[in-house]
Simulated assay, not measured.
Amino acid sequence: MAARRRRRRLKKKTRRQLQGWGAVVALTAALWVAGHWSLVWPVLVALLAAAVVGGAGWALLRAHRLAVGQDRVWRAQEEARARELSMAEVDALSWQEFETYVAELCRRDGCREVVVSGKSGDLGADVVGYLADGRKLVVQVKKYAAQRSVGSQDMQQFVGTARLEHGADVALFVTTCRTFTKAALGLALRQDIVALHRDLLGAWVKGAHLETLIPLNGRGGGSRRQAPPS
């Protein structure tokens, strides 16, 4: 108990000494500033001005970044709405009309000798033609509901016929639904099948060139594989 009281007294004494020295330092600084005010005030004003300018600059930079971010989000939303508006017309097509429409998109982007099968039993080649650089293009077209996914069975059938049966240099799977299943997309990437889901199709409908969409593939971010040589 006695040792504890001694420690408390020592702490109080130390605190009083620190407070006393602090007061002495503060008084000394105040006296020095008072005696050298003509030298001190320009520095204080400069520091205050720098703080104000820096704060204003930081606020403007933050506001700019926020505005840029909001604008980027708004543009993405507007592009998505525009794609959906264009896709509304596509959704109204029959599956035969959709095949013909995809063929017209190919012709628009410079494909030659584009032919539409327009019948069952075509072994996955709904549209066949040649890209502007001469590569053979084989397109499988599936008009599905937007909320549906393309499964691995559809993709397996196309993989099995696109090159073996039709000699495709570029094999394109186009669908009106939003996604491919993980298994279907994985198969497409491994077998160099270009998977165009609803969003990429919407971009194509809105004017994106087929050559710019081919590298993107089903994820929208592209495949690690290199594009086939021309």
Rank of each mutant, 00 (worst) to 15 (best):
G151E: 07
Y144L: 14
L200E: 13
A29E: 10
L137V: 10
L196V: 15
D199L: 01
E104K: 05
E104D: 13
S120Y: 04
I214A: 04
V73I: 04
V128T: 14
G129D: 06
V116H: 07
A195K: 11
V90N: 06
W74H: 12
A103H: 11
L39I: 08
L196I: 15
A67V: 00
A51E: 12
L164G: 02
L47F: 12
G55E: 00
P215F: 02
D126M: 10
P42D: 05
L31Y: 11
R7P: 05
G20L: 06
D109Q: 07
T175L: 07
E113S: 09
T175F: 06
S152N: 11
S38Q: 15
W41P: 00
V116G: 03
C177I: 07
V33F: 08
M1R: 12
R8M: 08
V159L: 06
T212V: 00
L131V: 01
T100L: 11
W32E: 12
R4T: 07
G118I: 06
A92D: 13
G57I: 11
Q70E: 11
V40C: 12
Q77S: 10
G160N: 15
A92I: 05
A195W: 04
G55H: 12
L27I: 09
V53L: 09
A227N: 11
L216Y: 00
R6W: 07
G121L: 03
R83N: 10
A188C: 13
S149P: 08
W21M: 03
Q17K: 15
H197A: 14
R178S: 14
V52K: 06
S94F: 00
A208N: 02
S149L: 05
S120F: 03
Q77D: 13
R75P: 01
N217E: 02
S152G: 06
K206L: 08
Q17H: 12
L18W: 02
V33K: 12
L131S: 02
D154T: 06
G220D: 02
L201P: 02
G186N: 11
E84P: 03
K13P: 00
A92S: 15
D122L: 08
G57W: 09
A49C: 01
G69K: 10
R163F: 01
G55N: 07
V150Y: 01
G222M: 01
R163K: 13
D91F: 01
G35Y: 11
L131Q: 03
R107T: 04
R75F: 00
E113C: 01
L196C: 14
L44G: 14
Y144P: 04
S38F: 03
K142I: 05
L187W: 10
Q157C: 06
T175D: 04
L44W: 13
N217G: 08
W95Y: 01
V115R: 14
H64M: 02
R148S: 08
A125K: 12
A208T: 13
D109K: 08
D169F: 04
L185P: 04
K119Q: 13
W41T: 11
V45M: 01
T181S: 14
A34C: 15
A50R: 14
E89M: 07
L213Y: 00
A59T: 01
R135Q: 13
E97I: 02
V139N: 09
R225L: 09
Y101N: 05
S117V: 01
P228A: 07
